Simulated scan of single mutants.
Amino acid sequence: MSDLSVVQYILIALIFVWSGFVRSGLGFGGAVLSLPFLLLVLDEPLVFLPIISIHLLVFSSLTIWMNNRKHGDGQGIEKASTVDWQYLGRLLAILIVPKLIGVFGLITLPGHILSAIIFVIVGLYSVSYIVNKPFRSGSKTVDAVFLMLGGYISGTSLIGAPLIIAVAAQHLPKEKLRDTLFALWFILVMIKLGAFVWVGVDLQLIHHIWLLPAAAVGHVIGLYIHDQMLHAETSLFYRVLGTVLLVVSSIGLVTVWM
C-alpha cells in the first residue's frame, strides 16, 4: 500500500473505524461489512484479509478477557462466563472440517454461486428478525447444513459469519451471543492466518501501526452501542441484528453480480 494517495489512506482508515465498530457492536461484520468498501479503494483482497484477521484476534480476545476478568460482586460469587463454551464446542464440531476444506481449497466451488446462496439465505433470516418473527428451522440437519456452508465460505474468504450467526442467534441468549461468536472467530481466524503464513502471504504488519488505532476507535464506540442494545428490549436487539444482516446480504448480492 506504499503507493497510495493521501485520500486513499484516509478512506482506508475510516473504513477500519467502521470495521471495529460493527465487530464490537454486533460480534461480526468486521470483514463482510468492510471488505467491499476496502476493495473499492484498492482491489487487492490479500492485502486486507490478513489485517482484518489480526484485528479480529486482538479485539475479540481483549473483549472476552475484559468482560470476564471481574468475578462476582465482591461477595465471592464467581461471575458467569460471557462465552457459552458448551455451544461453542458444538459449533466447532460442525464447522471445523468444512473450514479446513475451504482454507486449503480441497474442494473448489464457484465463488459467486456460493456467495449468492449465503446472501439469499441471510437475507431471508434478516427479514424474519426485522418483523420480530425469527425463523427457526426446527431441524438440526438444516442448521448443520447452514453451518457447514458458512464454515466453508469462512475458510475461503472470511465472509461466512452472517450464515453462522443466523443459526447461532436461535440458540444463544443475546448476553452471550457476541462473546461466544468472538471466541469462535478467534479459533477460525487462527486457522486462516496459519494458512496465510504457510503460503507466504504478506501479513502487512507495518500497516498495523496506524490501522490498529483506527479500528480501536470504532471498537470502543461499538462496545458502548452493544451495551445499550443489551439493556434495550430483546425485540430491538434482534431488529438491529436483522437490519445489519439485510444490509450485508444486499451489498453482498450486488457485489456478487457486478
Rank of each mutant, 00 (worst) to 15 (best):
I221A: 09
G111D: 07
G102V: 01
S157P: 00
I130G: 04
F28N: 13
P50K: 10
A232D: 08
L100K: 01
S250R: 00
A31C: 06
S154I: 08
V220A: 10
H55L: 15
V248S: 14
S53G: 10
I64N: 02
V142Y: 02
L62W: 14
N68H: 12
W185G: 15
Q228V: 13
V127T: 01
L236M: 03
I10N: 06
L38P: 06
T108P: 05
H207F: 15
H208W: 05
V58H: 10
T108G: 00
A214C: 12
E44F: 07
A215Y: 14
V254C: 02
Q75R: 14
I96F: 15
G72C: 01
P134S: 14
V97Y: 05
K140A: 10
I130H: 01
S139V: 11
L223G: 01
V32C: 08
S128E: 07
V22I: 09
D179T: 03
D227K: 10
F146C: 08
I251F: 12
H208L: 14
M66A: 13
S137F: 05
G29N: 05
I12F: 02
G20E: 07
I159E: 00
S157I: 05
P36T: 06
V240W: 08
F104P: 08
K70A: 10
Q170L: 09
G200Y: 08
L39C: 08
H55P: 03
N132A: 09
D43P: 13
